[in-house]
């Protein structure tokens, strides 16, 4: 599994496409049988308490994409704070299991663990 993280609009999905994954390979559910999961942060938003339970299934994906949400002023609303913590901790866990972790910054993929993944043939 390759974990791809980065800010909102940083170019994460475009990067996944550039690796050769067609739109049909891109999913947003854990159990849809697709190799790529986009918007992990949205799944955590729905069930912040269940974030940990997702980890094992997520590790079977080829690619998991998650927005970085932990920077900035600590939010006033408790649910927002819980969400940020849950996304962050799940990413720590996934990063441990991942073969590579890629952080996309301004459209540029930066390998922060392992190597940049090869494009699909």
């Amino acid at each position: 599994m390759v974990l791809i993280i980065g800010a909102y609009g940083a170019g994460k999905t475009e990067y996944v496409r550039s690796l050769g994954y067609p739109d049909a390979a891109l999913g947003e559910a854990v159990d849809d049988g697709k190799p790529v999961l986009l918007h992990l942060e949205a799944l955590v938003r729905q069930r912040p308490d269940g974030a940990d339970a997702l980890a094992d299934t997520l590790c079977k994906k080829e690619i998991v994409v998650c927005r970085e949400v932990g920077n900035g002023v600590i939010p006033l609303k408790k649910e927002d704070r819980t969400y940020r913590d849950a996304v962050g901790r799940l990413c720590v866990r996934l990063a441990k299991e991942a073969a590579s972790v890629v952080r996309v910054v301004a459209g540029i993929p930066v390998a922060i663990k392992g190597e940049l993944p090869c494009a699909l043939r």
Partner: peptide, 11 residues
Amino acid sequence: IGGAGCGKSAY
């Protein structure tokens, strides 16, 4: 330095 839940404390 790091954001919420990034693993700062554990590290």
